[in-house]
Design a protein around this nucleic acid. Structure first.
Lengths: 264, 264
DNA sequence: TTTCATTCAAAAGTATGACTATTTGACCCG
DNA sequence: CGGGTCAAATAGTCATACTTTTGAATGAAA
């Protein structure tokens, strides 16, 4: 009832770093990992405050973010409940990150691949007609980075992601561009299942090159075809060695932000 | 500067209704209407509190929501700035609502149409293979509601929106399903530009019927073709009478939530 | 026993004030 | 004139108190 601003530990360590992102990610991760089941109600705000050692302000704003992403829904007297997965905003990059290898559940990975096969060839055709010279140059730059990645498979994937993001951007369709997030997620997690053989990357380089050239020649049909071949390659890779492998990507989701991390 | 919890009007009307949604919508609308320009910094939190007559808690949580939607970005000392339009989450239903007739700016309407023409025929083909009998029945129900709408063009549009949402759902591709929001927005705003002639609706009814029948026969190719015809019709309508007409949808965005609405 | 209205309590929603951390820009020193 | 330091401005965090909403328990009436 008096003041006592920091509850006894005023002596040392009175720092309050920015913890919002951590709390949000922790709760979001718990939801996307099914640690909080769909339909269940998660601890009340005051309990979450204790669990993570933060104020109610932070907890509430975190829940607000998750609510905006469609993960939870709050109501007085009842609490904050986890929404149906059909309400989740699956195009949200953070949700995809929190789901980690679990994007294979619910056939999400397959859905993403279908979407890519539907959209990317069309985007390539549009890009052939609309891309600026700068965008084509950027695309070429991404291709060079893929070529020069050598044995660094992670750098190769990073450049690959950029390649496809630039392509979507070059389609000059703002809705297509919003799909970058799922392509990003798909490629990142495909990385762990893809064939690391050099000859496969050589083939990928080849079709990507054809795509760039088609854009340069403003040949929409060639671009569409090249994009199709790109995706066929990805599908083949996945079909070849994906099914047998286990999920080796458990380390991707970043370390968990355990409750009471600010213990001392 | 003393206590005075409710600024003098403590006597009566000390109610604090749920006002967060209103504040969020007000600021969001101001941003989407370019009243706050891209790159500009909006009033600081304490000023927004005064403007809307709410506490900082509400303002902060509202800004948090807008931040999650990619509309703004907050940084200490600098304030809350409006993000580039390329960062906006254009698939967010609320943003589309706040943009209102302004979806015609930035060619967004055209982008949406392109996306529909790319995705919907594929979704229809998938639906022909995967839809449950219940989903086909629902689709048929939506079609009946279109048929029975009579002269009520709004009811017709509402049923039309439902039709296409059910179709996307029936494709059993979760990513496609996320695109419902843009179709919703497109149809709602196309409503105000579309031809109200009866014969046009008759034709629309016909092709929608063909689509339902194709699904019933599990004929993917026929479904794809019918979906294409549906969209061709929409495009033709828009091209015929859309261009000449002005934007008659100014009343759609709902009334503005003006600052200090809680004046008394 | 069933059904309806009343009351109660639990949870989120709002308000307020104080303090902290971060960052920018200006000022000062070399 | 350049670079480093300091101070002010603003979002971020904390703590507490209060209000509104709403489900459930309670009790009365049919």
């Amino acid at each position: 009832m008096t003041k006592e601003p920091r509850g006894g530990k005023t002596d040392l360590q009175v720092r309050r770093p920015r913890v919002q992102k951590n709390v949000t990610a922790a709760i979001g991760l718990d939801i996307c990992s099914d640690r909080y089941a769909v339909g269940s109600v998660l601890p009340r705000e005051s309990d979450l405050c204790e669990m993570y050692g933060v104020s109610r302000t932070v907890v509430r704003e975190s829940l607000k973010i998750l609510s905006t992403k469609g993960l939870v829904h709050s109501r007085p007297r009842v609490g904050t409940v986890v929404c149906e997965k059909t309400d989740w905003n699956l195009l949200d990059p953070q949700i995809l990150e929190w789901m980690g290898p679990r994007i294979h559940d619910l056939d999400l990975f397959g859905c993403i691949l279908e979407t890519r096969r539907t959209v990317e060839p069309v985007a390539a055709a549009f890009a052939a007609e609309r891309a600026t010279v700068q965008e084509i140059a950027d695309l070429d730059g991404a291709w060079r980075r893929m070529r020069d990645a050598g044995t660094d498979i992670e750098a190769f994937t990073r450049a690959d992601v950029q390649f496809h993001e630039i392509l979507l951007k070059a389609s000059h369709n703002q809705v297509f561009r919003q799909l970058s997030s799922i392509i990003h997620a798909a490629l990142i997690y495909a990385l762990y299942r893809s064939n690391e053989a050099v000859e496969d990357r050589e083939e990928a380089l080849l079709v990507h090159r054809e795509l760039v050239e088609a854009l340069r020649l403003r040949d929409a049909e060639a671009a569409r075809a090249a994009s199709h071949r790109t995706l066929d390659l990805a599908v083949r890779d996945l079909a070849l060695n994906g099914a047998s492998r286990g999920l080796a990507a458990s380390s991707v989701g970043a370390e968990r932000f355990s409750p009471s991390f600010r213990g001392s």
